[in-house]
Write a protein that binds this DNA or RNA. Structure first.
Lengths: 224, 224
DNA sequence: CGTAAGTTTGATGTAGGTCAACGGCCGTGG
DNA sequence: CCACGGCCGTTGACCTACATCAAACTTACG
């Protein structure tokens, strides 16, 4: 339980302390908010099952998706700098999350160095993930962006011991396109093209990766 | 000194402890490396004077600039997650930096809660900066990207109590274009266009902002 | 000074955006 | 049970913002 939320190399007693204050919230409905932009920062969250997207709104009110979070992943760090969440986070499907109050986590970190260290790793992983996305957005074609997203999902599913070839995308095409800085039409066309090349089998939100090797080549190397 | 490196609300004695281990390295030459990708993570760095860029190389060996750092700003967090720097950081001009060993910073955080809190803020600011860049890259035109960069520089210069209208860009057009996901030519043309509209006065790396208001409008609202 | 690297400007090409139409899916209501 | 309307996804025709290619120009430096 707490194990799933914060998979630490800590002993039984320590894990018990952790469990004490982690709130296992009741499942969220699809589209239900975890927190919204501007709200006071109190906690970070771990996805237990289901999935979450985070996004912000630009000056025109258009939605910019900034992240997708799958089981085992942590979100909410964006609130720490200014004591209020910068993004809004909502469930993409029926989802359960653990709420981890940041104050408590800090206190516990003081008592248990392993936890403090782990927390730092978690935050900095968010930095690395964001920088990978920056590199993807700045320098790559539509095909490369879409292929990279699929591979990222594949890897993250593998980490959950789930099939890395048969993926269910919990988000809409429009959410994908926002995340990748493309339009819905382009995402749709690219998926079609990849299917025609027999790299994928696409069935609405169900994607089967037929040739991961080729997909990786396409994601990282120059086009065609 | 230490004050400049880590401007904390700490008392004299505490600041002394800080100063003990902060290394004030001798000035770096232009193009000199602070750390390089793959190197073991040991320290974060604060820019004291001059400026620094961080970048990574993609599979083709093309450089992707991930950040520019000005006096008072901290860089190097990208090494924390995997205990090795993901980016390479080099001085853009003659630059002096403070090296702050992370181990020591952690220890000091244990002793002085204010420092620990401050460190967390610093890291999470990097997250917020990265996410702002993601939003910029994903959803905006070339004009908006360039205008946003100039405004960002303007704001950061203001924080240093320097003129927010007369800026000296320490990086090349090519570095700007990599950072913004554009080509050199486009950056050059956009700067030209903004000058023609009398929003800027461009003289190679010297930029004067003539109409900040209009620039902000242009950066955030729909084109034209 | 001469060479190389950075910047600007112009001409042309194209990836992907925009606009429009259609088809599938699902919930609601008769 | 079927009819209808709205939303999502796909597909096609077209167009534009930016990339690419090319050349002159400017600056930095031996």
């Amino acid at each position: 339980m707490g194990n799933l939320c914060l998979p630490l190399a800590v002993d039984e007693g320590e894990r018990h302390k952790l469990d004490q204050f982690i709130e296992h919230k009741k499942p969220l409905q699809p589209r239900e908010k975890v927190f919204h932009s501007g709200e006071a920062f109190t906690s970070i969250y771990a996805v237990r099952s289901g999935s979450v997207k985070s996004f912000c709104l630009d000056s025109e009110g258009r939605e910019q998706v900034t992240g997708f979070y799958l089981p085992g992943e942590i979100f909410g760090w964006d609130g720490l700098a200014d004591d209020q969440y910068q993004n809004t986070a909502i469930a993409l499907e029926t989802t359960s999350v653990c709420e981890i109050p940041y104050e408590k986590l800090e206190q516990l970190g003081d008592a248990i160095p392993a936890i403090k260290k782990y927390v730092m790793k978690l935050i900095s992983r968010e930095i690395n993930a964001d920088q990978k996305l920056i590199a993807l957005l700045a320098g790559h074609s539509a095909q490369q962006k879409v292929a990279s997203l699929l591979l990222s999902f594949s890897d993250r599913l593998a980490q959950q011991k789930r099939s890395p070839t048969r993926l269910w995308l919990p988000m809409s095409r429009s959410e994908i396109s926002s995340y990748l800085g493309l339009t819905v039409e382009t995402v749709s066309r690219v998926l079609g093209a990849l299917q025609k090349k027999n790299l994928l089998k696409v069935n609405k939100k169900e994607i089967e990766i037929l040739d991961k090797q080729a997909l990786q080549t396409l994601a990282t190397s120059a086009d065609e």
